[in-house]
Design a protein around this nucleic acid. Structure first.
Lengths: 127, 127
DNA sequence: CTAGAACCTCACATCCATGTCAGAGGCAAG
DNA sequence: CTTGCCTCTGACATGGATGTGAGGTTCTAG
């Protein structure tokens, strides 16, 4: 498929897909006229890339991990595995923090709703 | 306390604290010479602001929610409460997504570790 | 053949929280 | 008074993913 289709299938913009390629996250074969072509498998790959971006990883970091995804061999898993574990832990801490923040928001929402009903509930901002 | 102390207590930079004030997230009283002074309570407030930033909220959004935090009154809770619920839900979706990503990373890590041991485990990138 | 999408590259713009620097004033200790 | 550190305002710099536009080529449908 061409880049436009990959974009619409993944939700990524055409611009972003070209950027991913520039960063070494995504490969494409080129037609004789220079247009990029992708296989169906790339859809999954792009979705995963987007996930990692959403998790706060940088292009550089993603680039380090991706080889390890497709082809787990001794060469690449050597350093990348450690990196992956490290990023997993960072993500886990981040999730914990976000859950705390959500809890705090829940507390605030409850307090405000209680206030609306004229109750006297006063707790908030705890984490 | 002055701005430097608030910074070191919260981990935010002095620059950031001034920026928070500029965005209407943080108030300060000024000494006759113009220096900012804060009460102990502001420490908690700054920490909460940092939490919200980490949760992906923008200054504008945080500014909308904060009045609702300190002083839950009918006037501000009117629209802000809805906004808060909306942000809570967005955050919740985000957390769910991150958990999926973490699971995917766990899968990859396991696959790579298995590979190291010569096993033939082949699953990854699922979400 | 032709019109209009879709694609190419290159390059500059944008957003937004922060960093950083310059020039000036404030304040405590020696 | 002086030295040193903290603070002030203002402004420009940064990074990273993405938007956007120009100028040109390619593909597809009529």
């Amino acid at each position: 498929m061409r880049i436009g289709e990959l974009a619409s299938r993944t939700g990524a913009s055409v611009r972003s897909l070209r950027y991913y390629e520039e960063q070494g996250l995504l490969a494409s074969t080129r037609s004789s006229s220079g247009q990029r072509h992708y296989t169906d498998g790339e859809v999954e790959r792009v979705v995963f890339i987007q996930r990692l971006y959403a998790a706060g990883l940088s292009s550089r970091t993603i680039a380090e991990l991706l080889p390890c995804v497709e082809t787990p061999s001794v060469e690449n898993s050597d350093a990348a595995l450690e990196r992956m574990v490290q990023e997993r832990d960072r993500l886990s801490e981040y999730i914990t923090d976000l859950v705390h923040t959500r809890d705090a928001l829940d507390g605030l929402i409850a307090a405000n709703r209680a206030h609306r009903k004229g109750l006297r509930t006063r707790t908030a901002m705890a984490g």
